[in-house]
Design a protein around this nucleic acid. Structure first.
Length: 439
RNA sequence: GGCGGGUUGCCCGAGCGGCCAAUGGGAGCGGACUGUAAAUCCGCCGGCUACGCCUUCCAAGGUUCGAAUCCUUGACCCGCCA
């Protein structure tokens, strides 16, 4: 699994292949001296990327870096995923114009556990020559005393330079920064130094907003260990319309299936704008260049077929949720969304399709709440006012048939197999209504 | 510690005693057109037991027939000075 046939892993050519591929995918934003990096990569190196526990799950934005880490592993290098048990307690000022509110230690601890699990999913720990590692920076930060920190680490930092960092200066402009967040770059630098010492880790990768923090680490390594190391960042992904990637009305698209269902996840990618779809395939998929170019060609010839979108959705859902889930949610979408008549679906198909989407339960067919109440109960809309508005505006459906009347309620005969009905809000938001079994 | 400015709905941002559930923009939502795309156009966009009622403009008090708008106190933010 480590390399594609015919591709030399190492040596100048191997390193070249890796870098050229990253460039072609648009994954190279900045790096330290490219020749030096190329030289370094001609032998297996150890590299790392850090992920701070700022929520109980990572989201699709993190996936860019995770996937790059994996690309490096596939090319034979040793990846380390660092979970920021320490840095997560402090808060990175990068890219924020406001101080973060601190999370409690308990909460961060819990998130560390979950994120550790998540990052592990994308790396191979069984690889015979280059197994992955996961580390937690709390392990070397927590035992350090304040005096040690100030004398051994702090002494190597110039406040002048720290202030000049974009992440800090932006905040000084915007209104201020606490000493806590100001110190973040020191902690991150310490991580790089520590991994350099422990594992001879000589490359850190991250989002381009991390460039400042990363090169500060390089300085520290140079000063303390006279060591040479490298840095590389991936661009912050933007959508063609200039908005942030990975956000929906409901917030982030999470990797945790409990937070973003595999169905919603698949739909997110399927609904990618045309202008972005090829770009996203390059960034996220492991499909080789030739395949993506082929997809691009057929996409341009017949965009309506949405093959590129479908490929993207599939690749990503398989990567994050596995092939089985992908198949399930795709089948569900086909069944519910397809041109076919809902009446043609058999009970088992319908049941499994409906299990993928938001739902509302009904006690028995004797007393069925209104369409409005059901949609609110499912969580798909926030208030009855909003649900009523949708009915009024002609966006309300029962079993693919438009309904009118704000007080409309489904009747018993609307339930397939006496158990299921499907509500739709607008073009693509579906709600399953299930009659719960009698006790 | 002193002086000045600020805190408005998801975000930005008007309003400066009644005409305010509160202008405008963005986001979002529905419709039309399409391809479960984009752009465009139209409509919506606090809640509810809904042509009426209820709760909002940092918090708590107060003035007034009446306050987001005035006063007092407090919290937080910003700027200048020490």
């Amino acid at each position: 699994m480590v390399c594609r046939q015919g591709q030399p892993l190492f040596g100048h050519d191997g390193a070249m292949n890796l870098l050229e591929d990253l460039k072609w995918r648009g994954l190279l934003a900045q790096s330290t001296d490219e020749k030096a990096l190329l030289d370094a990569l001609s032998k297996p190196i150890t590299l790392y990327a850090g992920f701070d526990p700022t929520a109980s799950s990572l989201h699709v934005g993190h996936l860019v870096v995770l996937v790059v880490l994996r690309r490096f592993q596939l090319a034979g290098h040793h990846p380390i995923a660092l979970v920021g048990g320490a840095t997560g307690l402090v808060g990175d000022p990068s890219g924020r114009n406001e101080e973060r509110s601190l999370n409690t230690q308990d909460v961060v601890e819990e998130w560390v556990v979950r994120i550790r699990e998540q990052v592990s999913q994308y790396l191979d720990f069984e690889a015979p020559t280059n197994p992955a590692r996961v580390v937690n920076n709390l392990d070397w930060t927590a035992p350090m005393s304040a005096i040690e920190f100030l004398r051994d680490i702090g002494k190597h930092f110039s406040v002048n330079q720290m202030l000049a960092k974009e992440s800090v200066s932006a905040r000084l402009e915007a209104g201020g920064i606490s000493y806590t967040e100001f110190s973040y770059q020191v902690l991150q630098s310490l991580d790089f130094l520590e991994l350099f010492r422990r594992h001879n880790c000589t490359l850190q990768i991250g989002g381009s907003d991390q460039w400042g923090n990363i090169v500060t680490g390089l300085d520290l390594i140079r000063r303390v260990e006279s060591g040479g190391a490298h840095a590389m960042t991936v661009p912050l992904l933007m959508k063609a319309d200039g908005t942030k990637f990975g956000k929906t009305a409901g917030g982030s698209v999470w990797l945790d299936p409990a937070m973003t269902s595999p169905y919603a996840f698949f739909q997110y990618w399927l609904n990618t704008e045309d202008r972005d779809v090829i770009n996203f395939l390059k960034v996220f998929s492991f499909l080789p260049k030739e395949d993506i170019e082929g997809i691009e060609k057929s996409h341009l010839e017949n965009p309506g077929a949405r093959t590129a979108h479908r490929t993207l959705a599939r690749e990503l859902t398989i990567l994050v949720h596995g092939a089985q889930d992908c198949e399930r949610v795709e089948a569900a979408a086909r069944a519910l969304f397809g041109q076919g008549d809902l009446n043609d679906l058999d009970e088992a198909t319908l049941e499994s399709a409906l299990s993928e989407i938001p739902r509302a339960s009904v006690a028995n067919v004797g007393e069925i709440p209104s369409w409005v109440d059901l949609v609110v109960a499912s969580g798909v809309v926030d208030s009855k006012s909003a649900a009523r508005r949708i009915v009024r505006e002609g966006g309300a459906y029962l079993n693919n048939v438009k309904i009118t009347g704000e007080d409309f309620s489904p009747s018993p005969s609307d339930f397939f197999f006496g158990r299921f009905a499907i509500l739709r809000k607008g073009k693509r938001d579906l709600v399953a209504v299930e009659v719960s079994k009698k006790h």
